[in-house]
């Protein structure tokens, strides 16, 4: 594995019966990169992501994530990645602090480290006033920012974000992206899916999946040149229903 790559996938394939959900995708993601993983509903994004985070065994092909093999080393993958699902996955009936402590514990952080990280995280997110409130009572945008921070607690090499900003208000959505930029700036690789095409423009590189295959992969600028359009929305419209 090239030491500058955090993900390497070759002909990665997943079949359900005779249906090919992910069809021989090949791509690399570089260290510190913000990688946008786009595609229509049903194109195979979630299935591909499940293989990369070690919870679904590929049918064929090969892939390494954070240096570990997706067939044989899935437990090591899970320790070295962060994951934030599109469905809110913190405990609604635990407080902000309790959630941080719980997930810190799951990832094997020491009590001391959890305490320090909680304080920093709560301050950075401006959650001081609600730190002892139940997470279920917070607005969606706050929950999503908290989820993202929790997924970074154990300093993963790469974090997977599955539609993190769906339904979030426009200001919070931008604050969320500033957090993504910051994480990437500090060396964490960010692998993100979204249906907001303006967010695709924020990525360093973007791949677009159509019917299980990666049909385009480049910087947003080069993709727009290649398809001779002004914005990523039009790139998407041109590709996704060919």
């Amino acid at each position: 594995m090239n030491k500058n790559n955090v993900i390497e996938a070759q002909n990665l394939t997943k079949m359900f019966g005779d249906f090919t959900a992910v069809d021989a995708i090949t791509f690399d993601v570089k260290k510190g990169e913000i990688f946008g993983f786009l595609g229509a509903n049903g194109a195979g994004k979630t299935t591909a992501m499940k293989m990369l985070i070690g919870i679904s065994k590929p049918t064929s092909g090969a892939a390494k994530v954070a240096g570990f093999d997706v067939f044989t080393n899935t437990e090591d993958i899970k320790k070295n990645i962060g994951y934030m699902s599109q469905k809110f996955a913190l405990y609604g009936d635990l407080t902000v602090k309790e959630n941080i402590t719980f997930f810190g514990g799951i990832y094997g952080l020491s009590r001391k480290s959890i305490k320090e990280k909680s304080a920093v995280l709560i301050e950075e997110l401006g959650l001081e006033k609600v730190a002892s409130k139940l997470v279920g009572s917070l607005p969606l945008g706050w929950k999503q920012k908290l989820s993202f921070s929790v997924s970074l607690l154990h300093d993963p090499k790469i974090v997977f974000l599955d539609e993190p900003t769906g339904g979030v208000d426009p200001i919070t959505r931008r604050q969320f992206w500033e957090m993504i930029y910051k994480a990437a700036h500090q060396g964490t690789t960010v692998f993100v899916t979204t249906h907001y095409m303006d967010e695709a423009e924020y990525c360093d590189r973007v791949s677009i999946m159509v019917n299980g295959k990666i049909e385009a992969l480049d910087t947003p600028k080069k993709l727009k040149e290649q398809f001779q359009v002004d914005n990523m929305n039009d790139v998407f419209l041109k590709l996704a229903r060919r």
């Binding site: 229509a40 509903n41 249906h195 996704a240 229903r241």
Partner: peptide, 8 residues
């Protein structure tokens, strides 16, 4: 909500 740009 949650629907891709083409289907939207």
């Amino acid at each position: 909500t949650g629907v891709d740009p083409v289907s939207r």
